[in-house]
């Protein structure tokens, strides 16, 4: 009972944060509200007994994504482009409403939350639950799946992320180091250029 109340209140907070992010024009404030959004969704995952997902959401969503967005903002302008708000476009509202209704209609086919007979819980999950502690020797099932059963998959992901990071550093690293070498004058110049 109390958990239902918690979920409802957390979802209300999520919706309020999302609307506030849309209405803000200062991008620094929007990034901070994104951090709150991420913490809220992580709490929601935790209430739904998914601590590993909550862990990832907090580390990536609230930690790394916030830092990445702030780094981007320190290179670019922190204001949104002023666009005149055009009203009276019912076609867009209709498209959004129809898409939302179709998605909500699609959820009716899903098995109930926590249903033990759901396909996700009856396919390979019993094997992981019964065999993985003995076969792999790691108490945490999620860790044993990610690090052992899907070891090659994880290795590939690490290679992809390493390559992407290397490419970004090669593309951006030279500019940033030369910009900081020429002290504040070059920085102000870059700022005025990005403001144009």
């Amino acid at each position: 009972m109390i958990e239902h109340l918690l979920v409802v209140v957390l979802l209300a907070f999520l919706a309020a944060t999302a609307i506030a992010v849309i209405r803000l024009s200062n991008l620094y404030a929007a990034v901070m509200l994104f951090g709150i959004y991420s913490l809220l969704s992580a709490s929601l995952f935790l209430v739904m007994d998914a601590p590993d997902v909550a862990f990832t959401e907090a580390a990536v969503g609230a930690g790394i994504a916030t830092v990445l967005m702030l780094t981007t903002l320190s290179l670019a302008s922190d204001r949104e482009n002023e666009k005149p708000l055009r009203r009276g476009q019912p076609l867009k509202l209709v498209v959004v409403a129809v898409t939302g209704l179709a998605l909500a209609w699609g959820t009716l086919d899903l098995p109930g939350y926590g249903d033990p007979d759901a396909p996700a819980h009856s396919h390979v999950a019993p094997r992981y639950i019964e065999d993985s502690p003995r076969a792999i020797g790691i108490d945490n099932m999620v860790t044993s799946i990610l690090a052992s059963y899907r070891g090659f998959d994880t290795l590939g992901e690490v290679a992809v992320i390493f390559t992407a990071g290397l490419g970004v550093m090669l593309l951006l690293g030279r500019t940033i180091s030369s910009g900081s070498r020429s002290k504040s004058g070059g920085r102000k110049h870059g700022g005025s250029k990005s403001g144009d």
């Binding site: 907090a58 609230a62 930690g63 916030t66 830092v67 780094t71 903002l73």
Partner: peptide, 15 residues
Amino acid sequence: YALINYIGVIAMLKF
């Protein structure tokens, strides 16, 4: 979470 909170605030004030 406490650690991430700390790092996040430091990052915001730094950038």
